[in-house]
Design a protein around this nucleic acid. Structure first.
Length: 903
RNA sequence: GCCCAGUUGGCGCAGCGGUAGCGCGCUCCCUUGACAUGGGAGAGGUCAUAGGUUCAAAUCCUAUACUGGGCACCA
């Protein structure tokens, strides 16, 4: 016998172990079966999993289990990502605690430590995924930096290089001075911040007049090489070509004209700092004579070129000093408040410094063509569709991808520099132009240029952007570049499930790489989900202290409850406001499921002689409520299937929740009690058969969402349901064809009428404070043949639910004195309540009912009395409205009648 | 600045052309042999605003206002 309340922990532990031991989630290419494949978005090895991971993986698990129960050969590939900068930062923070930097350890020792950390972290993460119940094929575990993946990375680099799609060049890059590396454009986040607009006088050398420029970064003026104005700007026409004295320096800079200058912003004159601003760099390319001067270094420090007063200062200190010095020399016109977007590092939040440096890039325009075509041809579909446009726009406006990172943790760039041709001893690689190089995994034999001495090479010290290896993930996990059977069978994968925050960073790049190297999309669909936020919609973060730990929630409420709470709220593409309260409802549902099964089991023989047959229309002793629940069950299946097809697991779950709780438990189980408590016989057996089969099917449908509890209950119900599968996942879900119901409509209509009557009498009881243990008698009066007949036949349904002792059905019965009245289904139900009833109260109650009824009549009458409605609305609508009108009138007149008697 | 999404009871969300639904919260009643992690009943919404289409609009269209997001940024 099951416990009274569901206790998740032992159940979860048991099944995690059993699934694992049975290798339940193992997949192998199966020629005859359709493959359904998902590659996990590999979590970074930066620590433990958070709620976002829980949601992401729960969603994938739902899809995988759902498809498997539908007969597909499902394969879900687990793995982790080395996580480049993010992971290196974690380690550097740890070192910092001991007052050390990575340079104290040296590259080799540092990487050893990283490997150790990674090993631990991987175990933690994979263990958590197991606990979440994820149906991952554990034998396929991959890591973005393991041997197989390293081969994929090298091969793709080599091929792109051979095609001229990878190049090394000097560009204005986004430099994070804290992380000490270049970043790609999408790794920069733009934050709106309060700032200032400093207005600075730049005197003309002839001393006749000066120009005032407006800037948000005064410290960069030390590197100005020009002031630009719009060619049509009348204010500055005479000054174009004139020279200005650059304050605080000895430099003289020209006034130039450039179309890009906005006359209406600031003073209409822009200081031009080509070395530290992407736009100014562009201006320099159009006006090469102005040249550029670098005044800020890679550590965010002011360089000697900035002048001896400033050299060595940080960017922040330099700003303060420049402003102070300008003020002192009277050149600061004014300071305005100014809100503007500041680029910050997506990993550490430091302000990005645009700097010129030599980096490796992937040409994107060519590579973006195939993904755009795939999108156009619907070979790749994004759900929800609203993300397709931003995705396309990004690909259309794509810029080259900077792939080199000046960190240690990652795939080392497979490029070697000939030490005979290049002098690379003095500076860092990213500051050296035009190097002679060879692309090779290991040290090359000879230099293609000088034929140089054997082995006199040095490898590029930098590593590849972590997203470079991630981009290959759907291929590399199946062994690419080797031609493997797995790749043949599983690629393209079925669907990618991820958050919208990495749509460009990752999804777009996988499409590019997949199409480039495989000629096919890496996945045909992408399911984009939202971010898990706190109750008030804020992002969860350690600094805000609003983080909810999924493990803690799993301990407290159970894994299935956590999954349920996340999944039911995971409306397509929408963020999820999450709080601990979300979990109580989920836990309660699990308990409801548990207890409904407990109830069914309690009412079955201890050991079944044989399993119950699946219900069908020829079944003996079927009655109305049986036909009804099967019809409802079928509708639920249809709706759940439709929602899943529409990539809306939350919708499917809502359907199943409602069916189990509000339909199956609230009505069917309650009504089955009649028969279950009665004598053994065919009617009882019929009820048992239906309870078992509908519940069993519902468990299966719910299994993808709540795998543990359903597995446990399925096991308990198995002997009665005639199930032979060892695990629920090896069974199959009920399909629409399995549920045979000839007449869907009539049982549902009949039950609607009966429940209407039940509710009306319950309401009466409640409003008149009739004690629950007081059984009442009811006299049903009036009504059409259909309703009266139905009531006669099925009064046993109503009696226990409304706690009625006796129902007298007499079309002509009149209201006995001392009785209250309920009106439903075109009938009046008189409830004699001598001594209990308060007539004033009853009048008041009926008056309220009447107001409502009159309201109803009015609303519907406005339709029925509308000639245009009758003439233009579909016939079925008109007929429906007419019958509604009739029913409303009937109700109204019955209430009026009763009130008349009472007053 | 451009684009997208949202605006429905106190809160969080469904519904997306035919008389407004769910969960939580709230009020009242109930420990009745599955479940108080439960049951029953109830209060609470002119579905952001203004126009339009339609016999009929929360639902379609157009504006507006807020909110959130994406992209691009003018120093």
């Amino acid at each position: 016998m099951l416990e009274k309340a569901y206790d998740p922990s032992p159940v979860e532990a048991k099944w995690v172990k059993a699934w694992d031991a049975a290798k339940l989630f193992k997949s192998a290419p199966a020629a005859k079966r359709k493959s359904y494949t998902i590659v996990i978005p590999p979590p970074n090895v930066t620590g433990a999993l958070h709620l976002g991971h829980a949601l992401n993986n729960a969603l994938q698990d739902v899809l995988i289990r759902w498809r498997r129960l539908h007969g597909d050969e499902t394969c879900w590939v687990p793995g982790t990502d080395h996580g480049g900068i993010a992971t290196q930062n974690v380690m550097e923070k740890q070192l910092k605690k001991d007052g050390k930097t990575r340079h104290d350890l040296g590259r080799e020792r540092f990487l050893e430590k990283m490997q150790e950390w990674t090993k631990d972290c991987k175990n933690t993460i994979l263990g958590q995924l197991r606990r979440l119940g994820c149906a991952l094929d554990w034998d396929r575990e991959a890591f973005t930096m393991d041997e197989v993946r390293a081969k994929s990375v090298f091969e793709s680099f080599k091929r792109l290089w051979a095609k001229g799609l990878i190049y090394r060049g000097e560009r204005m890059v986004n430099w994070c001075v804290r992380c000490g590396t270049a970043l790609s454009d999408i790794e920069v986040e733009h934050e709106e911040r309060k700032g200032h607009l400093w207005h600075i006088h730049y005197p003309a050398t002839d001393a006749h007049r000066d120009i005032v420029v407006a800037t948000t970064r005064p410290e960069t003026m030390l590197g100005d090489t020009a002031v630009a104005v719009h060619p049509d700007d009348e204010r500055y026409k005479g000054l174009i070509g004139a020279m200005l004295k650059l304050p605080l320096t000895d430099y003289e800079i020209p006034v130039i004209a450039d179309d890009q200058v906005d006359k209406d912003f600031g003073t209409g004159a822009v200081k031009v700092t080509p070395a530290h601003d992407p736009n100014d760099y562009e201006i320099m390319l159009r006006h090469p004579t102005i040249g550029s001067r670098k005044v800020i270094g890679f550590h965010g420090e002011l360089l000697p070129e900035a002048g001896k007063n400033y050299a060595g200062l940080s960017r922040e200190k330099a700003r303060e000093k420049v402003v102070a010095d300008l003020k002192a020399s009277g050149l600061l016109e004014k300071v305005d408040d100014h809100r503007h977007a500041v680029g910050v590092c997506y990993r550490c939040g430091s302000v990005i410094e645009p700097l010129l440096s030599w980096q490796w890039f992937v040409k994107q325009i060519e590579l973006a063509k195939a993904p755009l075509a795939a999108l156009e041809a619907k070979k790749f579909v994004i759900h929800p569709e609203s993300w397709a446009k931003p995705y396309r726009d990004w690909l259309v406006n794509i810029k080259d991808w900077c792939i080199s990172r000046q960190i240690w943790w990652g795939h080392r760039i497979p490029v070697w520099y000939c030490l005979d041709c290049n002098d690379i001893s003095n500076k860092e690689i990213h500051q050296l132009p035009d190097l002679v190089c060879v692309v090779s995994l290991s040290k090359p034999e000879a230099c293609p240029k000088c034929g140089g001495k054997k082995g006199n090479f040095s490898q590029d010290p930098d590593v590849l952007d972590t997203w470079f290896s991630s981009a290959l993930w759907p291929m590399s996990v199946f062994g690419w570049p080797d031609k493997t059977g797995d790749l043949d069978y599983y690629y393209p994968t079925s669907i990618l499930v991820t958050g919208y925050e990495i749509l460009y960073l990752w999804v777009a790049r996988m499409q590019m790489m997949g199409l480039e190297f495989m000629g096919k999309v890496p996945f045909t669909d992408a399911l984009i989900h939202g971010i898990v936020r706190d109750k008030s919609g804020k992002k969860m973060s350690k600094s805000l202290g609003n983080v909810i730990d999924p493990l803690e929630m799993m301990d407290k409420y159970g894994t299935d409850a956590l999954r349920f709470a996340l999944l039911i709220q995971a409306r397509p593409g929408k963020d999820i406001p999450f709080s601990e309260e979300s979990l109580t409802g989920a836990r309660n549902f699990a308990n409801k499921l548990w207890n409904s099964t407990r109830f069914v089991l309690m009412n079955l023989p201890e050991s079944p002689s044989k399993p119950y047959e699946a219900p069908n229309d020829g079944h003996c002793c079927r009655e109305l409520v049986d036909d009804w629940i099967l019809a409802e069950y079928k509708v639920a299946i249809r709706h759940a299937e439709a929602a899943m097809s529409a990539h809306d697991p939350a919708g499917a779950l809502a359907v199943l929740y409602e069916f189990l709780w509000d339909t199956f438990c609230a009505w069917y189980v309650e009504l089955a009690k009649n028969r279950l408590q009665g004598p053994e016989g065919e009617s009882k057996e019929a009820a048992r058969a239906i309870l078992v089969h509908v519940l069993n099917g519902t468990l299966k449908l719910l299994h993808p969402f709540m795998p543990f509890i359903t597995e446990e209950l399925y096991a308990a119900l198995k002997p009665y349901a005639g199930e032979s599968a060892r695990f629920l996942l090896d069974a199959s879900v009920p399909t629409l064809d399995d549920v045979i119901v000839n007449d869907m409509d009539s049982p549902r209509q009949k039950m609607r009428t009966l429940s209407e009557v039940t509710i009306a009498i319950r309401t009466l009881r409640s409003q008149l404070n009739v004690p629950p243990d007081l059984k009442i008698s009811v006299i049903a009066s009036g009504g059409q043949d259909r309703e009266v007949g139905l009531l006669k036949e099925h009064q046993d349904y109503i009696k226990p639910l409304a706690r009625i002792e006796r129902i007298t059905i007499d079309a002509k019965a009149s209201r006995p004195p001392h009785s209250a009245t309920a009106v439903a289904a075109g009938m009046s139900f008189f409830v004699p309540l001598e001594g209990v009833i308060d007539f004033a109260k009853e009048r008041e109650r009926l008056q309220k009912e009447l107001v409502k009824a009159e309201d109803d009549v009015k609303k519907i009458a406005s339709k029925v009395e509308n000639k245009d409605f009758i003439a233009r609305a579909p016939e079925s609508e008109v007929a429906l409205a007419r019958s509604q009108h009739k029913a409303a009138l009937e109700r109204q007149s019955r209430l009026k009648e009763t009130l008349a008697i009472l007053s």
